[in-house]
Amino acid sequence: MALQGRSLISLEELAKEDILDLLAQASKFESEPNRKILDGKVVATLFFEPSTRTRLSFETAANRLGARVIGFSDAATTSSSKGESLKDTIMMVSNYADVIVMRHYLEGAARYASEVSPVPIINAGDGANQHPSQTLLDLYSMLKTQGRLDDLDITLVGDLKYGRTVHSMLTAMRHFSSRFRFIAPRELEMPQEYKEYCTEHGIVFTESHEFNDEIISTSDIIYMTRVQKERFTDLMVYEKVKNAFILRNQMLSNARENLKILHPLPRVNEIDQDVDSNPAAYYFKQAKNGLYVREAIICDSLNIKV
């Protein structure tokens, strides 16, 4: 059993072997996504906050495994809008489902649900806190394209202050010996607590406020994130930096052959459309990898191996 208690709440509690085991399982699902091994099982997807992308990915995973899916896609249509507590909703649904995939706007909601639920909980995002399936698919994409998670030069670009995905990635990558570069505008640089986390866990990193060819040409992975206007208190500053963290095809002329560009999607304009046809562009395939990773996560939660 890879996941303790079989719920998946945070990457913090996954050991290196758990992560590698899940990624290995995902790889098997990639070679054969349609396996009716959850025939007769019911997977609930409870989205207290809408997230079509994540929900469709989990529901497709469940369907390809032969499970039935129940649930809701928006809390406005559920009893929680009538004031039912999260605990009561979880208790009710656990009468019907074998596993609950949940997304919630409150932080810690999935952890709490896992403490009251008799069936495993899979965290599909709890506010700004955790989104472990996204991180696992990011790792899967790196492992698949580079053949390893150690000894890589990984460049994180954009909003490193509020970007939940980049923080989770650091948590997961503490087990591996890759090198990080944090490229962000001054206003959105990597928070001190995460830099301390890196130092404590031996993660090597450098920082810069400039996204240039030298950085691009020495990267194995470039992980782009959105620089959102709402994050800036001073719109003048936003106007100044908004174009400095956009990746364009012409910037990739000296890139390493193995370079892959990742993005958690949806993108706005931080990756120019002219990059899409470059062989280094990997973000759409990365999203597709989410399906295999989520098949692995659902099976693992039910203690089923392939």
Binding site: S85, Y105, L106, E107, G108, R111, Y112, D126, G127
Partner: peptide
């Protein structure tokens, strides 16, 4: 102190 923490919304 996190207003979005579950403990401030449910009897946890």
């Amino acid at each position: 102190l996190n207003p979005k923490c579950i403990t401030n919304h449910e009897p946890v």
